Computed example of a mutant assay.
Amino acid sequence: MIYSFGANNYFSFKDGFQVSLEFNSKVPKSISNSRKVSTILGIKGGNASGKTNILKCLQFLSYFVARSFNQPPEGPLFLNPFFTSKKPTDIYIDFESNGIRYIYELSATKTKVIREAIYKKISRKTLIIERKNDELKSRVAELSDLDLITLRSNASLVDTALQYNMKGLGQDLHNIKSFFHKFKGNVSSLGVMEDSYVYDYNVISEYYYKNNDALEFAKNIIKSCDLGISDVEIFETENEKGEPRYFPMFLHPFELNGSKSEKLTYWDESDGTTALYRRLYQYWTVLTSGGALIMDEFDTNYHPALLPQILDLFINKETNPKNAQFIFTSHNLEIMDYLGKYRTYLVSKESGESFCYRLDEIPGDIIRNDRSISGLYRDGKLGGIPNL
Rank of each mutant, 00 (worst) to 15 (best):
V232F: 09
C57A: 12
I100P: 03
Y119P: 01
K51S: 00
K120L: 10
I100D: 14
Y104Q: 12
E243C: 08
H331C: 00
R35H: 14
N154W: 06
A275M: 11
P304A: 05
L313K: 02
N33K: 13
G380C: 00
H331S: 02
W267L: 13
K260L: 04
G375H: 13
K125E: 12
K51H: 02
G290E: 09
G99V: 05
A305K: 14
S230C: 11
Q163R: 12
T319A: 02
V158C: 04
R245W: 12
N98Q: 07
S178P: 08
L376P: 06
K14N: 11
Y164N: 08
H181C: 15
D200T: 08
L287H: 04
Y208G: 01
W267H: 14
G50Y: 00
R35Y: 15
G290N: 09
A305W: 10
R115L: 09
Y302F: 15
L293K: 07
G75T: 08
G6W: 07
S178C: 05
A108P: 01
E130K: 06
F180T: 08
M295A: 07
I43F: 03
Y345W: 11
P72M: 07
Y246H: 14
T274G: 01
L162H: 15
T150E: 13
D15R: 04
F23H: 11
C57I: 05
K349Q: 14
S68H: 03
D94K: 02
N70C: 05
Y246R: 01
H181P: 04
K112R: 15
G75L: 03
S188D: 13
Y283A: 02
K219C: 04
I327E: 12
L41N: 09
K349C: 11
D370E: 09
W284D: 03
N70P: 07
E269W: 02
E236I: 09
P88N: 09
L382M: 11
I310F: 15
T39W: 06
D296S: 00
S196M: 13
L382K: 11
D365C: 03
D94F: 02
D134I: 08
L339K: 07
F326K: 01
K341H: 02
S188I: 09
V140Q: 12
F250R: 02
W284T: 04
Y209V: 05
L359H: 06
H303R: 05
T109E: 12
S289Y: 10
D360V: 00
L21E: 08
E361S: 03
C57V: 05
K182L: 10
I93R: 01
N257E: 13
T300P: 12
Y342Q: 00
L143R: 04
K110Y: 09
S156Y: 10
N323G: 08
A161D: 11
E105F: 07
D337Y: 11
E22C: 10
T288K: 07
N8A: 12
N301C: 06
S85D: 15
A324H: 04
V187G: 08
N323D: 14
L146E: 12
I367Q: 01
G258M: 02
D299H: 04
N33C: 14
